[in-house]
Amino acid sequence: MAALREAQHELETQANNLSKLQKDIAKNHQVRKQYTIQLGENELVLKELDLLNEDANVYKLIGPVLVKQDLAEANANVRKRIEYISAELKRLDGTLQDLEEKQNSKKETILKLQQKLQALQAGKSKA
């Protein structure tokens, strides 16, 4: 009887862990999506900046004000931002893979626990 309760308890905690992991994965997906959108936007900006004349005036919106920027500076900034976002995307991919592996192993353990629980219940009903 005690073993059964223990198994049930274990199953519950594992299920909680799994749902937490799934939430993390969903969150990760969300962040990843956002970064991908930003990357696309920044690439568009870079393309347009490349097409500008050198004497074109470029401004950056910082808070409520437009701050005039050097074209070269703006270009460098955008490039840096793209690099950063790419690195971040890579990192997110890594964590996502990690999380998915964890999720799979969790699922397996839960399955095993369920089987164990069923066996215990069957044993109890026989007894």
């Binding site: 930003q38 936007e41 920044n42 568009l44 347009e48 900046l49 401004y59 919106l61």
Partner: peptide, 12 residues
């Protein structure tokens, strides 16, 4: 003043 994206504007 054209918004290029990501807060960058250019006079065109």
């Amino acid at each position: 003043m054209v918004l290029l994206g990501d807060g960058y504007y250019a006079e065109r």
